[in-house]
Write a protein that binds this DNA or RNA. Structure first.
Lengths: 351, 351
DNA sequence: CCCTCTGCTGTTACCGATAGCACTAGGACA
DNA sequence: TGTCCTAGTGCTATCGGTAACAGCAGAGGG
């Protein structure tokens, strides 16, 4: 067993296996991918050689000829948010079963970073690519179209898709939640959102909020924007509550663009002696576990995080099999989870 | 621009760029990796051709010659647990900056699945591999050693490392937490653990618990094992509480191997009218956000999830640069976070 | 004016696998 | 007995790059 100076061995090559078995590489290759075409005796000999050398085929080399890497690249804004990890898990499940590898990268919510990452991901010639959201630079779109690989955009639906998309309507979801708050009796509803310039999910949610308010004949309040969306921590929600106390003390409900913020807000209210849901209604987004645990429990929007990942995986597989047509779009919907934090007139829990 | 029947283009090749620029592939290759060796005029011409064709180099092909893929493979038990996602994010940060790609796979906590995944990951000739835990099949160890690539095992420290390791001592962590509960006045302390046969983290935590009890002259209670560890949901913790009410009603504290379980337990206690921390002390593990939000707030063990990922990344980079020696091991420690759920004699919050 | 050196670019071989075709031996068939 | 067919296996080229060395022109030195 030869070992070079850096002690990197990389296992044996197909040629070594072939030599040991007394055949050519081609026969070894056949044993691996079309065993029925090889004489059982020869096959056994080759398999013995493979076992003896602990040979692991090099898919990179095979892929060169085949023109495919067996890799799917995925870009998420961050891994430090279980909601995106859920989508990745769903994707990974489906892809792994099909023998495809998953190659991950995080963009920190910035489209220019995303562009450079896509460029570097493409150097690995993925068989498909999964993106989060529909907002990308023009160069990104052109690059992806030029490569002609299946691209699935997740977490939103819309018309301007690069290729395919699976998601839900953030506009409708925010609309529905706002309407739910209004139905519960809240009138001065504030919306705490992420940056709307780089994130169409945030933009669409804002539109949904504003539309619902308008339909109810209520004034939409100025949207409170959380700048550093990468820092998704409860304290950000707490800070928003403290800020709103000054800028808009008459607000009677706050709808947060993430459960993480909403939960921080609930804790802040507890400290400040603000009764939730009596004095202030609170709603979140994502349906994270934390919202089920906090007291009062959090009203939120459930999003199909895992399912989007799975669906994206299936769309890719179908497409690679030549079935799924381009421009396929799937709306997986959402649901409003009404819990204690928006149940006006119920307990005024603040401890 | 040629496009084959499946509409997969894969961008242009270096040969096409070369033809357009009126040079050979070799010159294009040089422009990309040692531009200073190419005449500025030629270089400009080549760069124009690259831009015009939107050429993206194929690292797979380059890697074939170089004998490296620029990819690092990581295996985590599951992505649906933010704690492992944190480790991945740390790893990803470091690797991405160094131009390495991260290739992820989840093992569902089973070493046999892990083995087959490692085999399939190795087909992609990663430059390094990151594993979770120290428990692997013999075949896995041999395979990895045979490949001679840097391997970092995370989330535990110990002697039987394949190559390198970064983690903390689960034994000491569980020991410290148990001791903390004893110090708080609890005596009949139960431990709810994951399966100890496939997961040395669970095994070591059990040992730490037992040792701490023994040192205090207290009897270690039979360990309550949560079988389906993959289902890491609060309800599992709630179920454990209900079970313990029957099997060991005199227990005065429960130490859970995960905050997720501990939080479910706290909610169950609230429903059952069991006062926490008065009647029952509760402690968790991991220091998840959820433990900061639940009431009473959760006493837990903080583990360096993100840092382990980062450190693993740095160890790999150092090793690839020929610096880091084999068998390097790093203990990043842990810390006990004492919060309300184990503060005996304080409030008996059960709402 | 010749030689050597330097700077730049091209040629050839090869990384590890696979597609496509060629070839061989033995059996079926007329 | 000759022809055709069918397994089973090998040969060659190729995927898209890179390493190593070769070649060539102009500059500088003697």
């Amino acid at each position: 067993m030869p070992t070079d100076k850096t002690s990197r061995n990389f296992g044996s090559t197909m040629a070594e296996v072939a030599a040991l078995a007394g055949v050519t590489k081609m026969t070894v290759s056949r044993v691996l991918r079309q065993p029925e075409k090889v004489n059982p005796e020869t096959r056994a000999r080759v398999q013995a050689a493979i076992a003896e050398l602990a040979y692991v085929p090099n898919r990179l080399a095979g892929g060169l000829t085949a023109g495919s890497s067996g890799l799917v690249a995925a870009i998420v804004p961050t891994l430090r948010h279980s909601i995106f990890a859920d989508t990745l898990e769903g994707l990974s499940d489906v892809l792994t079963q099909a023998g495809l590898g998953l190659f991950v990268s995080s963009s920190a919510y910035q489209t220019d970073i995303e562009e450079s990452q896509i460029r570097s991901l493409l150097e690995r010639r993925p068989d498909a690519m999964v993106l989060t959201g529909l907002t990308h630079t023009t160069a990104t779109r052109e690059l992806l179209r030029g490569f002609g690989i299946p691209v699935v955009e997740t977490w939103e639906t819309g018309d301007q898709v690069v290729d395919m998309a699976v998601g839900y309507s953030n506009r409708e979801a925010a609309h529905a939640m706002t309407a739910e708050l209004i139905r519960s009796g809240y009138r001065r509803i504030a919306f705490v959102n992420g940056p709307m310039d780089t994130n169409e999910r945030a933009r669409h949610r804002a539109e949904g909020y504003q539309a619902a308010m308008a339909e109810a004949g209520l004034p939409a309040l100025p949207i409170h924007v959380v700048r550093d969306e990468a820092a998704i921590v409860p304290e950000t929600g707490a800070r928003a509550i403290r800020a709103l106390q000054h800028t808009a003390p008459d607000v009677d409900a706050v709808f947060f663009t993430s459960d993480v913020f909403a939960v921080g807000a609930i804790l802040a209210c507890r400290e400040l002696g603000i009764g939730v849901p009596g004095q202030l209604g609170i709603a979140g987004f994502h349906d994270l576990e934390v919202g089920r645990v906090v007291s009062p429990t959090l009203t939120t929007v459930h999003v199909p995080a895992l399912e989007m990942g799975r669906k994206a995986g299936h769309m890719i597989l179908a497409r690679l099999a030549g079935k799924q047509p381009p421009h396929a779009r799937h709306d997986l919907g959402f649901s409003i989870i009404s819990r204690e934090s928006s149940r006006r007139g119920t307990n005024q829990d603040s401890a």
